[in-house]
Design a protein around this nucleic acid. Structure first.
Lengths: 420, 420
DNA sequence: TATGATTGTTGCCCTATGCAACAAATCGAG
DNA sequence: CTCGATTTGTTGCATAGGGCAACAATCATA
């Protein structure tokens, strides 16, 4: 579909757009024949054939094994030749700079993780320049050397508030302030590899969209439940970043302190991981407690644990309702280590939601299969997403050189195919 | 810019897209010459010339009066011929079905109101079918008969919760429930005029984007302060409707009741028009009070009025911060009759915002010049917006008729130009 | 075996943009 | 006043991409 912002469309872009449309269809739907693609994309079969030929030439697409007959057992007419993405065609790097670890993942064109590696890291003591250096080194160590040439971008995520350009305003947990992360990365990332940076909550959300195969239509609210509570909002698969990159800073939303009437507290001081564990430990009179232990006690219905879980449920419900009043999500996805608590108390959360709001509409919450690689994976997915959109496809068109000034350069030859 | 969802792009659509891009540029920037358009849209001058010729033929564009020289007093080179939209080329109808009134406005291609009319109406006693009938009759009475043929759509807004398809789930104020508003409208709207329906809060937001010339980039939060408190969220000019069409139901957001510690109340029962006037009247021991009187007393610093205004400021600030935590708006626009209070207490609101949130980022609030026509205007703007986008341009492409089945119809001739 | 259905390919047409050259219109310098 | 510089608008041609229709290939079914 076309969307004329304030830019026109040139002939050349049509092919780019249609090639990308084919790649996206293959990615989202699976193996398709030329005729299938023509129907799906409302193209003529002949056009579909031309486009597939281009993509075959670029090595981005290949015929599937002769499983052609398997999918559609008995269909009349000449069977089509199914095409699929070539997973090894291109790769994308994702890096997470955390407080205690650096993680790197490599995903392929199909969006699957093909390599991953982690390393202990002291995020607090390491200055930004050194951190990016170490992180990129780990990433380059993770991707196989012969694949580096086919790497189409690097995504980096960190627990930081950043604006549209990726400039870090402040990262309280890392102790960063006013860090030009993209500039630092350019110094250590090979040549002109595209680089994107993103807040870790948003990266998690992107990864969840990809990984959980959640339908990327409608409004989805992602909650990351760790020590901090972050959120990501996606509308039709596109992330909402907000005016200052602060959208989803739900951890600072104020919620009632049920223990002390009239007092409001930031959400994450009630339902965050540290807060919950501290409350549980205090109740038992011990120094520290672990999440696994707490979860086990909730399962055992130990009164102290259940009481804390009940407070957690009530507060989570309050936050969900407040959020729903504003953005009305189709889906709610919970992630982070503390998301494991949700299945144990979902009935209570739902009951509290019902109790709070009079108008009854559901807030369906899904717990995503959380992995420690989620944020790094999401960072890589950003580049994957970019590759399968027109943003990844170079300059819009050269800015129409003036009449006489014929710039002798043969930059027509610079077009090495629309994708790549 | 192209955005391949899962649809391809045909040759024919290029011209459509570029013609629309030209119209949008003229709408947003003002009169431009062919060369200006070529630069702005990154087109070749010759292409720009072709496109302008098409639009001239369609009567959507015309040369400006010879004011050419006025704008750019002394520029070297042959002066360009400026083009502008033909306001009378097309018209759009906007209808607001309210509780006490029906309102209809007519806007032209430039988005300016050229006619408007209102009529008393008993929204509560009138069933939906009759309401749409009366409303459309008023609208058809408002638009001049010779303009009806050039009408390109009807937008209808009502204080109702509706889903993506315009089906009204429930409209508490009107007493509606499960009403298929689009179907009712189709029965009374002439032939195949495009019809769109929208919640009144969202319509207000769209109208404010158009009218206030607010930059349609970034995240904007619109608050409508009447008896109810509604909100609209726009991202890059596009409205967020939410999963159930309930996005922006901020009036039910829970806020602390400062008078009674620990109690939470819906926002609109604290800062809504009725609530404020009732509180003020109660404080003075009178039966009722008017908004004008209350505002005057606040201006006079009458203690009772100031106290209520202070509570209003504090609660508004709380709601703004809660919203900012989630969607981080670039801009906040206040509308509705009670928005007149904001300029009197803006310093207090800002102070409360600062006090609530530790991380300091601004929430700039703008009060829009509210008129009672805002919602109807916004409803008409939806169609204007649609006209200047590809959605308004008929079928994507005929669905590729099968091989032998040559549909003899000469529907190639059906293309009476891309726009129209 | 014949028929129908579906797929993939090929040649041709239409359309839209890009490009380069040229005429037109205006300003400023001499 | 004339001439050059500069910008605009137009025109003819080249390029490229998708639509269309016809045809061969392939499979199921009668």
């Amino acid at each position: 579909m076309l969307d004329p912002g304030l830019t026109s469309v040139s002939s050349r872009r049509i092919r780019q757009s249609n090639e990308i449309a084919v790649l996206r269809a293959l990615h989202r739907i699976g193996p398709l024949s030329r005729a299938d693609l023509a129907r799906t994309l409302r193209l003529n079969r002949s056009s579909s054939g031309h486009i597939v030929a281009s993509l075959l030439g670029l090595g981005l697409v290949r015929e599937t094994a002769v499983a052609t007959a398997q999918a559609e057992p008995a269909r009349v007419g000449r069977p089509g030749i199914l095409f699929e993405l070539v997973p090894d065609a291109v790769f994308f790097l994702g890096i997470e700079i955390g407080v205690e670890h650096i993680r790197a993942v490599v995903i392929d064109l199909e969006g699957r993780i093909v390599a991953h590696r982690a390393e202990p890291f002291d995020g607090i003591a390491t200055p930004p320049a050194r951190a990016t250096e170490v992180a990129v080194a780990l990433a380059l160590d993770t991707i196989a050397p012969e694949r580096l040439g086919r790497c189409e971008g690097v995504g980096v995520t960190a627990p930081a508030q950043m604006d549209h350009d990726g400039l870090v305003r402040v990262a309280p947990i890392l102790g960063w302030r006013a860090v030009d992360l993209p500039a630092l990365l350019r110094q250590v990332v090979p040549e002109a590899l595209p680089v994107m940076v993103e807040n870790d909550g948003n990266a998690f959300a992107i990864g969840a969209i990809y990984g959980h195969s959640a339908p990327p239509v409608g409004v989805t609210l992602f909650l990351v439940l760790e020590t901090g509570v972050g959120a990501g909002i996606a509308i039709d698969g596109a992330l909402v970043r907000g005016g200052h990159g602060l959208a989803g800073e739900i951890g600072h939303m104020l919620v009632p302190d049920w223990a002390e009437a009239g007092r409001m507290r930031p959400l994450e001081t009630v339902i965050g991981l540290e807060a919950v564990l501290a409350a549980y430990a205090a109740g038992r009179g011990v120094e520290r407690s672990t999440l696994a232990e707490f979860l086990a006690r909730v399962r055992d219905r130990e009164p102290a644990a259940v009481m804390i879980a009940e407070s957690w449920s009530r507060t989570l419900a309050f936050a969900l309702v407040q959020a729903a009043r504003l953005i009305d999500p189709d889906h709610v996805v919970l992630g982070g280590s503390l998301a494991a608590l949700y299945p144990l108390v979902s009935a209570r959360v739902i009951a509290h939601v019902r109790a709070i709001q009079e108008a009854t509409f559901p807030i369906p919450a899904i717990v995503t299969h959380q992995s420690e690689w989620a944020s790094a994976f999401g960072a890589a997915c950003m580049l994957h997403q970019r590759f399968l959109s027109l943003e990844g496809q170079g300059a819009p068109d050269r800015p129409s050189a003036p009449d006489g000034v014929a710039d002798g350069a043969v930059d027509n030859a610079g077009d090495d195919g629309p994708v790549g």
